[in-house]
Nucleic acid binder design. Structure first.
Length: 415
RNA sequence: CGGGGCGUAGCGUAACGGCUAACGCACUUGGUUUGGGACCAAGGGACUCCGAGUUCGAAUCUCGGCGCCCCGACCA
């Protein structure tokens, strides 16, 4: 992509009403645009990052057998009345001119359960799991923290269905591992804690994945011994003891919830009367679990944690482009060589953002820092004098000059 | 939903109740620049959030609405 044609631009002054670090950096870098409180547009650069995160999530969900579907954001009032959740205040409602009311989905148990029931009756069809990556709506009383907490956001929600608690337990562990892989791949692995949380009425505990950051709104109690954490709401219930190892050496940290997994058991299958026929010919209750990750929140969390005073520092796996090719100076020699390198990289299917603009060196380098692509390749009169290009890693100080002929080989190793 | 603050060009700001609403960034044109947010010159861009009122006169004062931000409450 040529930067001269890229929609969206970097800005130096951030809107004064935007306070959170993630939104400030994302707006300054031209990743997102704010429409109103808690509602953001994703511009080309931001959309690329979001899509990459979604794809990582998608791959990990597929790996544990999840089948991707897409349900509607519009929800049927009757289904939510069935479970008694129609009047929960996070639910946004819309009304047609015929006075018919719909809800806007903030989670999809009320949608997926009747759907699953419609197609599945026999024990032979279990277990199975369905997921979607979809826009969710939530009537937050007060939207804040940039894209960490919006009224509209992207969510991956997976639902699993089982003929027994044992089967649910087994899948639950698989989902847990899949989630850990996701957080590792997006660069949050070492700051994300498996956290015990309230299980509601139907399970002793649910679990959250909490990533340490001051931008978070939760306090978690981390066990110094085994490295798991406990949510504020259940730490008392546990007498301040780690449920895994029994240690009481806990310390408190601020964190943001980036995912959760929850054994719903029959909480939703019962109200919808979703039963299966077992091999003994008897009708039995379907067990259910739900598993959520917010890709947009994940993106905001990465920005909160992996950025410096100059801008974002994207991890390789979710960077909008693999390489930022920057030409400095407007001599024909530099322009032609940069163009040539750009075309070569394109041909090798390398994702490259090429800053071909006629801006000054300072502007281009500052913008490059701000956008935060992990690897920068600079072409200038200086580098061409040495028959090479400069390679600079965004996450490190310093740079190196490598010969033009060695570029392909170098990039192959890096990417 | 309670308390506080704020709405002026795309963004950041200025303007005593009184002249054509000013400046910086961004944008357009021409020229000089090009290794860390360059310079010169010439331009375009505003129903001062909306609606009432007070006044000879309102961006400025009053009332109402809407929106935004901060603190709190809320967050399966």
């Amino acid at each position: 992509m040529k930067q001269s044609k890229l929609f969206g631009k970097t800005i130096y002054e951030v809107p004064k009403d935007e306070v959170s670090k993630n939104a400030q950096l994302l707006i300054r870098g031209g990743f997102v645009d704010k429409l109103m409180a808690g509602v953001y547009y994703y511009l080309p650069l931001g959309k690329r990052v979001l899509s990459k995160i979604e794809n990582i999530v998608r791959e990990e969900m597929n790996a544990i057998g999840g089948q991707e579907i897409l349900m509607s954001a519009l929800q049927k009032k009757e289904d939510w009345q069935t479970t008694g959740r129609w009047d929960i205040d996070v639910m946004m409602k819309v009304q047609t001119n015929l006075d018919k009311e719909f809800g806007l989905g903030w989670t999809h148990e009320e949608a997926v359960t009747p759907l699953a029931k419609k197609y599945v009756r026999s024990y032979k069809d279990f277990p199975f799991s369905l997921y979607q990556i979809q826009t969710k709506f939530r009537n937050e009383k007060r939207a804040k923290s940039g894209i960490l907490r919006g009224r509209e956001f992207v969510m991956k929600d997976l639902y699993s269905f089982h003929t027994s608690e044992e089967s649910l337990d087994e899948f639950y562990l698989q989902a847990k591992d899949a989630y850990s892989k996701v957080f590792k791949r997006v660069g949050l692995g070492d700051k994300t804690y498996f956290t015990y949380a309230s299980g509601g009425d139907f399970s002793k505990y649910s679990h959250e994945f909490q990533t340490l950051t001051d931008a978070g709104e939760d306090n978690i109690h981390i066990c110094d011994k085994c490295g798991i954490a406990i949510n504020e709401e259940v730490v008392e219930e546990l007498d301040g003891k780690c449920p895994e190892c029994g240690s009481s050496d806990l310390h408190v940290e601020k964190a943001v919830e980036v995912g959760n997994i929850f054994k719903l058991k029959n909480r939703f299958t019962d109200p919808f009367n979703f039963k299966f026929l077992d091999s003994d010919g008897k009708e039995k209750t379907v067990m259910m679990g739900c598993y959520g990750i917010g890709p947009s929140r994940l993106m905001g969390t990465v920005v909160e944690i992996l950025s410096d005073e100059k801008g974002v520092v994207w991890p390789k796996e979710i960077a909008p482009y693999q390489i930022h090719l920057v030409s400095l100076g407007n001599s024909d020699e530099v322009k032609n060589k940069a163009e040539e390198i750009y075309n070569d990289l394109q041909q090798q299917k390398v994702e490259v953002l090429f800053d071909d603009r006629g801006e000054s060196a300072g502007v281009k380098l500052k913008d490059s820092d701000l956008i935060g692509i992990p690897l920068r390749v600079v072409v200038s009169a200086k580098t061409l004098g040495q028959d090479g290009v400069e390679i600079k890693k965004r996450s490190e100080e310093g740079f190196e000059i490598i010969k033009l002929g060695d570029l392909q080989h170098y990039l192959k190793n890096f990417i």
